[in-house]
Design a protein around this nucleic acid. Sequence first.
DNA 1: TTGTACGCGTTATCAT
DNA 2: ATGATAACGCGTACAA
Lengths: 341, 341
Amino acid sequence: MGVTQADVARLAGVSQRTVSNVINNFPHVSAELAARVNDAVEQLGYSPSQAARSLRSGRSRVLQLVIPELDVPYFAELARGVVKHAEEQGFGVMIRQTLGDPRREQDALEGSAAEYAEGTILSAVGPVERLARQSATRPPLVLIGERSGAGVADHIGIDDVAAASAATTHLIAAGRRRIAFIGADPANSLRMAEMRHRGYRDALRAAGRSVDDALVVQTASYHRADGAAAMESLLRAGRAPDAVFCATDLLALGALRSVRRAGLAVPDDIAVIGFDGLEEGEYSAPALSTVAPDKQGIATMAVDTLLARIEARTQGAAQPQPRDIVIPFSLVVRESSGLAR
Amino acid sequence: MGVTQADVARLAGVSQRTVSNVINNFPHVSAELAARVNDAVEQLGYSPSQAARSLRSGRSRVLQLVIPELDVPYFAELARGVVKHAEEQGFGVMIRQTLGDPRREQDALEGSAAEYAEGTILSAVGPVERLARQSATRPPLVLIGERSGAGVADHIGIDDVAAASAATTHLIAAGRRRIAFIGADPANSLRMAEMRHRGYRDALRAAGRSVDDALVVQTASYHRADGAAAMESLLRAGRAPDAVFCATDLLALGALRSVRRAGLAVPDDIAVIGFDGLEEGEYSAPALSTVAPDKQGIATMAVDTLLARIEARTQGAAQPQPRDIVIPFSLVVRESSGLAR
DNA sequence: TTGTACGCGTTATCAT
DNA sequence: ATGATAACGCGTACAA
């Protein structure tokens, strides 16, 4: 703060232009001058003003990541990957936390804060159609998780229906008869919930099973406590299921605790499988089976896609159609869905 | 992007100055003009350039949070609190991830990226003396976790020694005789590890117990896997402990799994207590006892302290001496350290 | 190879 | 209450 290129130039006895050249290591600078400038920089503790640089160049080298909650492990792992990869590409990451509030999502995209970033990676909790509308003039937007129906923005994610179906099919193959689903969304606002629910139903039908809606329980949110409460209600409601597919690992971890407290055994009495591939599930008792999206892949691809958009934009190139990039997932069978005795 | 105050002024038929006044809702603007300007803003989809604003005002309203790993739950919870509180104060948060690399810490403070932020909250993994040195000319720095010995920067944190002592004393009071400690730092680079280790020893001595170094195991890091490995080595090494205090909850969660896999029971055979107060510990089997720092308190206080420094700096006020603010912790007794039968 | 001069979009000082 | 104008620090076209 305070010390400018002009100060450095004065001390080094060169023009400001030369200082700028040295800073941005421009090809044609005599080694001697460069040394003198670097000395002066060192001596004054000069560091370039990002604000001026950004105003001048129109580039901030900052990305914005908008997620619901930083301490939900799935988002934390995602954020780790995004920050890491962005830094490797020379970009910083501003993180905004919506806490599930659609107004905050809106504000993150339209508010003045948005102007810092050259682009946004958004994991929305609500419908994204409205949000993504102004993409023409706004900085590029890449969606993860919820996708926009209209193909109005790039989307990176896994095939939720197929993944949910794989989890359910695994339970069926393990010989389970009464397979419950925890995590349906009452408001139907999350397409994610809808898709995982659909995958569950699809798998059941494909196996010739009927779908028993008494075994489908809605949750207000996707935290451990919701899973615990949902499982309790399932256990209270007469005939208990012999397997449960939870829409997130956190729900599953909560469910695990409720089963345990009810004095039942996992997987002997009830098999449990989650969704997210959290490391936490490797250490639960029993270790949690799960459907694991390639989170690092999602993070990397989201950053790369966004950077490509930004690049094209600054080049004034024609923007290709928004793409929907599907990232692979894997079924991770651990203890909680082992074959029943 | 592209549309400036001048464009808005032209459309509204006023001077650019008036537009600026309306944007920053300056007191003296006729309601009629303001409406016209706002219309034009709406119509053009104008939003102010943060770069220009920041260059002009010298303020970016951005804070920098530097932590080792975003997906370590302790840091994730901390980051949540910091981002939340900073946003409430009108500040965005750039997150940098050091992955435990001291060079990245250095770079976060000195590199050009640092210039974006008006101040930095740093959770260091290495010695901070060097890092904090240049505080005179650099933006303000607030330390969380590791503290600098010299009182060269503000520090927010709990009393690690007292907290570790409380955990150990709890184990002693529960009748445990052979209490192990997991998490000592071989390189001794983390003062945190040293302090928690010291608290453990202090409590033992205060109870008239001898300290058996065979029960102290070092870990390379503070993740679940390290805790699991450490516990295994403890179980392999002859006489097993009947209690373990782990320097972090993650270590404890790993230890829990190793005990389970060895066919032993927690807390009957071995009591376990961790450190961090993670929500994850409420759902482990058994639920994990822990020492819980007031994480939201740390986050809030770190932001407030940093903001106060920034304020004083922009006011040109004299900077008070760096403070060391101690945040309370609480002992959370859950199942894993219940009384042995 | 290096110096001079201008403009990026804002805010703020000085008049009116 | 509003309009002209300077300056924030940097990058670069143009000139030398």
